[in-house]
Design a protein around this nucleic acid. Structure first.
Lengths: 340, 340
DNA sequence: TCTTGGCACTCCGAGGAGCCGAGTGCCAAC
DNA sequence: GTTGGCACTCGGCTCCTCGGAGTGCCAAGA
């Protein structure tokens, strides 16, 4: 039904349309690609492809543009991730080199990704959920104020200030620190909250109320999944490059970018670090973004996907290039996290 | 030269134009405002105002629109900051209530500001430069890795991981922590770096090299002014509301929003917390943003402006409203920082 | 001297006609 | 199955017209 030449035609249409952003006709197609057949033949193939729903024409007597289904086939079957140029690889290395902390890594990654793909880039912070507690610190920063610092295996540092109803002895603070650490260090965060519930009982009766309060704050800091919701965004200026027909999609996209919760839905679950997920047009879980595609992949140290990163752009985008950039950046970042 | 009525006319023009976004003519002006004179008279005044450069007409036989100079006069002389409605005040309170840490405060502020003004909001993180050291913590998080945590009076927490060439005794770490704290607690950050230079000499000869390295990392973390450059942005989706003629300004603005360094130039120096700065059109320090205005003010605990926050929008914006929102949010945030 | 009504003039922008060209579908021939 | 030919469609460009909003100026009135 769809022989090789028809697929070639589809591929050519996608490539041309992505490049020119204009409906592509049979004549220009045979001119720009050496298909070895005449425009009339291509027209026949196009009719077949349209019949199958892979392409469509904006109006009679215009060229064809790919449908979401067409892009889908293109991504699945007709292209492979194109390797990055040496220059690009080097750019990734130098760009990410010299990041001083997790924050820095994330920020550099978004910028890099935005620049490589000329699209909007999104990088989710490594989720706390699957990482473990590396250290907990308890500090009295003033007589009736305590600072809890939680350091995770993914290099993330969470802090929380706790107001105390009464002053706490240094000894008690020290004891608390020791007990907290023995209880939770090495534990996954999900588990940590459970491990500390019994701690207050181990303190002197007079202190139990206060300690319980601190522990509660700690548990909250651990459980609180706001941390998972943290994302960095870059390349919004590229939105203007999408131009013309995509204009009306800019607003909903900008709105989505502001709502981190929505954004994470866009990115989707962190998939294995080596797989890249492509969602095209209506496959995106937001009706308002029907003309938008998302290319994303998971990343994290030791092949374990802790978070997701990716790019967002018009359905008419350079899929091979984006997929290559996304996977490459994910690989580099994962590696940096493994080292750290 | 410019009698009261002419100023009234200018005010009316600005208000109408901001409201309708269309050039305003003499007739509609007398209809919508009770100026007590005929359109012909208004026309004469308009001619005078145009002569002086306060208004202009996009083309012959169109209404008038304010020039930057006109907005300037409007902001300086013709309007006062309009008080927020009770609902808005309450919104500010509830919105900022329950912020758990500095990060949270900043993010909530920026969202709030964007929502109140329906424009793009920018909030700079409190600069470290003028705050003082509240506490320094030194933690061995693994045998040859140390974590430095720096807590500032503005509630900000900076951390830095230091790789050690050799293992350090717990005693030494403890000593280092103690010495560091006595040396720098209460000092302004700018001073802190100087205070620690002599510290390594106070340690046992064997440890001096390692300690020097740690101290260097500490000094770097303190001096490093990347922290000043941190800003939060919100309300970019509002960009699409500006519409029509502002469209071509969107791209440069988005680009500026991505470059935090540029952004800070936009916001300008942190002024006294009670003063609000307005930059109109070409007064903005970026030629590409000639159709853009910035309303900003400093904020910080105890009337001391540590950072700047504000909104960015088209020159044709609601200045009184924006000024009110900016000052109100700044006041609330400052208060929260004082409490904390 | 300022204000007002009147009047001629300008010019933008909406709406419509007409043309051009790219592109299609179909058909008959190879 | 492929190709050239041909009639047809229709969007977009240009050109034109026309109405209306708005102006500037002037002469008369307060």
């Amino acid at each position: 039904m769809l022989d090789d030449r028809k697929l070639d035609v589809l591929r050519a249409i996608v490539e041309d349309y992505v490049h020119t952003q204009e409906p592509v006709g049979s004549k220009s197609l045979v001119e720009r690609h050496s298909l070895g057949v005449s425009p009339a033949t291509v027209r026949n193939d196009m009719a077949a492809l349209e019949e199958e729903g892979f392409i469509t024409q904006p109006h009679t007597s215009a060229g064809r543009i790919p449908t979401d289904k067409g892009y889908r086939l293109f991504v699945d079957k007709l292209t492979s991730i194109k390797p990055l140029s040496g220059a690009e690889k080097r750019a990734i290395g130098t760009f990410l080199q010299g990041a001083v902390d997790l924050d820095d890594v994330v920020h550099r990654s978004v910028r890099l990704l935005a620049q490589l793909t000329q699209q909007v880039a999104i990088v989710q912070y490594p989720t706390l959920a699957r990482s473990t507690v590396r250290h907990v610190e308890v500090l009295a920063i003033s007589p009736n104020r305590l600072l809890l610092v939680l350091i995770t295996s993914s290099g993330r540092v969470e802090q929380r200030v706790v107001e105390l109803p009464k002053e706490l002895d240094d000894d008690v603070v020290g004891e608390l620190r020791a007990r907290l650490n023995t209880a939770v260090v090495g534990q996954p965060l999900a588990e940590a909250a459970n491990r500390v519930t019994m701690l207050p009982k181990m303190f002197h009766r007079d202190d139990q109320a206060v300690v319980a309060q601190i522990i509660a704050a700690f548990a909250e800091a651990v459980v609180d999944n706001r941390t998972d919701e943290k994302v960095a965004i870059g390349g919004t200026a590229n939105l203007t490059r999408f131009g013309d027909d995509f204009d009306r999609s800019i607003k909903p996209l900008l709105e989505a970018l502001e709502e981190h919760v929505v954004l994470l839905k866009l990115l989707g679950e962190a998939t294995s670090a080596s797989l890249v997920t492509v969602r095209i047009g209506h496959e995106v879980p937001l009706e308002t973004l029907a003309r938008t595609s998302v290319v994303a992949t998971g990343y994290g140290p030791d092949q374990e996907p802790l978070a997701t990163l990716g790019v967002v752009g018009p359905t008419r985008m350079d899929y091979p290039g984006s997929m290559a950039a996304v996977t490459a950046v994910a690989r580099y970042v994962s590696q940096m996290l493994s080292d750290a």
